[in-house]
Amino acid sequence: MSDTRTISLTLNGAAKTAETDVRVNLADFLRHSLEATGTHVGCEHGVCGACTVIVDGQPVRACLMLAVQADGSTVETVEGLATDGALSDLQAAFSRHHGLQCGFCTPGMLMTLHAFLKEVPNPSETEVREAISGNICRCTGYQGIVAAALDVAASRKGA
């Protein structure tokens, strides 16, 4: 029993098509079929948030969505954040504030905050902490991540 489907989606602005088993989740499809390995897979059951990507504008857990369900969708991953090799303001702030150490949680953190800051451009610290409550980081203690998000919000407002 191995049903397959051909999936077409837009990944970070580029049209992509590949065939996959229907049981493959979106995170594995991105990593294995589209070779976009920026999206990390931690727990595979929706607990860690490492696999967070943005599908049609909403942050989702890519391990809890089948690749076939993303057929026809627009998907944004961490690979789409930098432009021409230059880090996005959020990525640069993570680096500046030590918002990452091993980097395993980072793609999920970045995509969660990328979506969040679009929706809530001027968040309180509590709101930032709540926004990343579905993402686990074993290294940083979260302080640097929260500081990075608040820094970006402040500098975007100033800009």
């Binding site: 595979e44 809890l64 969505m65 089948l66 076939v68 369900q69």
Partner: peptide, 25 residues
């Protein structure tokens, strides 16, 4: 399969392994 936020983890753990998955989305 509706939103999949409970069913997908159970399928990933193979606690649930249906022959047919009917996606309502």
């Amino acid at each position: 399969l509706a939103g999949g936020q409970s069913l997908m983890p159970m399928m990933n753990f193979r606690i649930v392994a249906p022959t047919h998955l009917v996606d309502l989305n």
